[in-house]
Design a protein around this nucleic acid. Structure first.
Lengths: 160, 160
DNA sequence: CGAGAACGGGTAACATAATAACGTCTCTCA
DNA sequence: TGAGAGACGTTATTATGTTACCCGTTCTCG
């Protein structure tokens, strides 16, 4: 019955990052989008982190680690591009960003955020979004976008 | 089947505000909480607005209209109190606050936010929250808190 | 080719949101 | 009465996000 039982990412997931980047390359090429060096790097940073990353965290890495002269607009523009094209998601309850697990098709997932390890798991459960759409329709509201962010404990953190 | 088909509030809902304040008075009295003049005023402001209100909006009213000397902490402390005691909700996708429709019992609702008139409708649908809890359980995640914020068009704004 | 539009991105300043740290007053209650 | 707690004022600071402007590259089309 589970459509996509997406597990939390392994601790070392460099190959995941690599494949995500390749996928992004392909996707952008297909759609005539320009995944520039900066955008690609920001995507890589977001993907590398298993927990949602703030814009200013990214900014710090670009400045300190990459030596690139970066100011807020640099990061936000890259993030805007990645958001628009479904390569990352924004977690508004954290003011942070996370790589999208399914960039291949337009969607908006639900996010499970562990309050202990701060990792975020992306779900894409039709049952949730259908329940929301149905309840909204009952009061005459037409849904255009959903933000579902859940705080709790992931399986790995429940012992502690 | 609709448990609480909460309609959007009428344009003039001063009596709603009044009854909400009375309810808050009673609730705080019952629980030995101090609904001070400041806290009560902030609650009133939040309730008066049919759309979510930012902390700095509240701040502006307190300063300009009430003549009270207020700085951010003043407002945030009042909001913290109201949040803790379930009298208002925070809409994190808007960085804004809205009066709670059901302060009498602990809960966290779902919010339908109209992108045209910016009004917010609070739902409290078990079907939604159950769908979230079930999906989370499927990946071993224990839910402690939910943020469900939906953007779209309310019934009144769909013609335009 | 060459003018000009479109785009990416750097720079500065600003706007908004939230918190930290400290002081004072007042209320309560032992 | 006086010690402690709570509420709130005050100042400063941090965190997050946006605007306006400029410059160089690339793309496009006459």
């Amino acid at each position: 019955m589970l459509k996509t039982p997406i597990a939390s990412r392994p601790h070392d997931h460099s190959h995941c990052v690599h494949s995500a980047l390749s996928e992004a390359d392909a996707l952008c090429a297909r759609q005539g989008l320009r995944l520039t060096a900066l955008r690609r790097r920001v995507l890589e940073l977001v993907w590398q982190s298993h927990k949602p990353l703030g814009a200013y965290d990214i900014l710090a890495v670009l400045s300190e680690q990459d030596g690139r002269r970066a100011a807020p607009p640099t990061v936000y523009r890259a993030l805007d591009f990645l958001l628009e094209n479904g390569l990352v998601h924004r977690i508004s309850s954290l003011n942070a960003f996370i790589g999208c697990n399914h960039p291949e098709h337009a969607h908006q997932g639900q996010f499970l955020i562990c309050r202990a390890c701060h990792a975020a798991i992306e779900l894409e459960q039709k049952s949730i979004s259908d329940a929301i759409i149905a309840s909204a329709r009952d009061v005459g509201f037409v849904v255009e976008g959903q933000t579902v962010e859940v705080v709790g404990l992931c399986s790995g953190c429940q012992g502690a």
